[in-house]
Amino acid sequence: MAADLVLTIVLNGLTLAALYFIVASGFSLIFGLMRTVNMAHGALYLIAGYAGYAVFEPLYDQDVWWAWYAGVAWGVVVAAVVGTVMQKFLLGWMQGQELRQALVTIGVSIIVADQLLAFYGGNPRQFFAPDAIFGASAVPGVGNYPTFRLVQIGIAVAVGVALWVILNKTKLGLMVRAGVDDREMLAACGVNVPLVAIAVFALGAGLAGLGGVIGSTAQPLSQGMDGRFLLIALVVVIVGGMGSITGTALGAVMIGLAEQIGQALFPTYSVILTFVIMVAVLALRPQGLLGRATP
């Protein structure tokens, strides 16, 4: 295989990993830090996609240059609001009951998917990136490469850095980390723990929303994407390790690369490769590559 082809495929893997990271980071945040099994993460992706599209399309028709940005912003806001409502009214009062939370969120995701199908129908949709980031750019060693895929990497890095700063350098991050270790003690210190939980959930849901719009620009937006991205988020977080942002990034890179290299070498079985990685990690290091072993 020619060197430039290998480089292109690796770059494809990395750009796909960037998308997976954006979606999975929110899941990792909620699952890893709050121990909330949010099976409706994919539903948040779908809601943001459709909500964002509803804002994007009329603006795009009017040829407004900021149509896509408005779609992104609206998608993130709607997902964050839906996430807040879910945490406040459904999940907050069953904190710590993982099975119950899993069942409730699965229920929510089924209802959401059916409502979206009834309302928007089955037609696939797709966002079109603004002209500035559509088309191809020259990449050394690769040649012309879709610009938007490179932008995905930029967004993913920005999300990763922002999350690291929030968790490690801010008071909110301090409270979140303390809450993971000892919820009662944190509450006893006068911190409004349910409010912190809502903030984390809104942040995680907002990231799912960001993933929803970015993902629907790179790939079609259609019914069934919720299940697909929930599965990817699960695999990425399991491989990378729960609650570790670096682990999520590592997991996303491994899954993204595996998918693209598999597609190039043995397309029929490329799906299996992803799960082989997951099974291997679960067998050898059940807490994930960078996850903390539960005490």
């Binding site: 430039d4 082809l5 495929i9 494809n12 895929r149 697909r228 597609q263 799906v271």
Partner: peptide, 20 residues
């Protein structure tokens, strides 16, 4: 031939091969 399973959403690797 370039086969891809039903439900594939990222064809980057195959497109790179086809273009070359």
């Amino acid at each position: 031939h370039y086969w891809a399973p039903l439900g594939t959403t990222d064809f980057g690797a195959q497109i790179a091969q086809i273009n070359r």
